[in-house]
Design a protein around this nucleic acid. Structure first.
Lengths: 192, 192
DNA sequence: TTTTTTCATTGACATTTGTCACTCATATTT
DNA sequence: AAATATGAGTGACAAATGTCAATGAAAAAA
């Protein structure tokens, strides 16, 4: 489990550090559809996903789910707004697949980062990755049509296509299932 | 100038640290419309804005600008994807207002962070703020109508309303100027 | 196996948003 | 002052996307 971390860093980590890391993280399994966070709760943990997939979504007044983010192996799942400010979350996070994750509390992570320089760098890289994917997503959302967003998604996240059903992908792209279905059938007719 | 940093951290910073920080940052002024980054260039610096406002945007095949982000005082302006991966940027960043900023190279910032623990914490907080605002933006983009997005924007960024013209705000929201104009006039008629 | 759920597709139609063309007002530059 | 750029508003119409309703297939549960 700790291998995931180590393989990312180029700096050496001592055995003592590894012990320290292991004792702050708590391994937890989530069954399909099990909540990691519910609307109104304060997010207490960041979850590093070892195996499986989670989704972060908002539920609107009509009860519709809107997929704000999808997380798979080696990504952090959390609502950073709630975690950071200790405010009730507007979102739900649940396991879409059977999931295994390492949980850590905000303060524990801060402490570890302070003590282990290699971790600092690794976490910054994860933050940068998140920032990059968010910027791409925003750029697509404001400047591409539904169809273009889908093809972009196909190109950037090909593995997601098989892992999540179409209505989840549609929601992630900000369109409804019917529209996505039509985009796909239009594409099949054109053989593209 | 360095005050901006210090006021954010709760930890004490020594005079030596301040000297170190000052010698890595380079102060630069941008005239209105002056580029900080152009499409195809590799982003070499992060810019911490002391005074003014910058915009990050994409230009599509038709030559239309799409505002991906707006930055004002105490925010970092950069294209993290280009900065991080040292790849040519897809975006432009320019000064919308007369702007004064502190520039720093990626490696210099990494070095400073490694040496000054208080900075680490502060930078993490900035990264978290960026993550929070990105998530809000994505959530709005995929789940709200143009009208709802505008009212949300009004609520979340009231200061932007007076600082940027309507066509910039429209683009930021992913709608066109005419639609925004109609949303506003509809609202005036209803006295809301 | 039978029974439910979940997921995908399609047609008819409504609504939202975009496009184009034109006008006016206000800054900004010459 | 005249000329030019910039920003905002509006009508007529087009295109994209959403909504509702119905169907069938496949997967999961009983």
């Amino acid at each position: 489990m700790i291998k995931y971390f180590i393989s990312y860093t180029n700096k050496s980590i001592t055995g003592a550090d590894i012990g320290l890391i292991e004792c702050f993280f708590e391994k937890k399994k989530f069954r399909r559809r099990q909540y990691f966070l519910q609307e109104g709760e304060i997010c207490k943990y960041s979850a590093f996903i070892l195996k499986g997939a989670m989704r972060l979504y908002r539920v609107d007044e009509k009860g519709e789910e809107h997929i704000v983010n999808l997380f798979v192996e080696n990504w952090w799942a959390s609502d950073r707004e709630s975690l950071m400010n200790e405010t009730p979350s507007y979102y739900f996070i649940d396991a879409w697949e059977e999931t295994e994750a390492l949980l850590i509390r905000k303060n524990d992570l801060s402490n570890l980062i302070e003590r282990i320089p290699a971790l600092t760098e690794w976490i910054r890289r994860m933050d940068a990755n998140f920032a990059i994917s968010s910027q791409r997503r925003i750029s697509a959302a404001i400047s591409l049509s539904a169809e273009e967003r889908y093809y972009d998604f196909e190109k950037v996240n090909p593995e997601f296509l098989h892992r999540f059903p179409q209505h989840i992908i549609a929601s992630y792209l900000g369109i409804n299932r019917e529209t996505l279905s039509r985009i796909r059938s239009r594409c099949l007719k054109k053989q593209c």
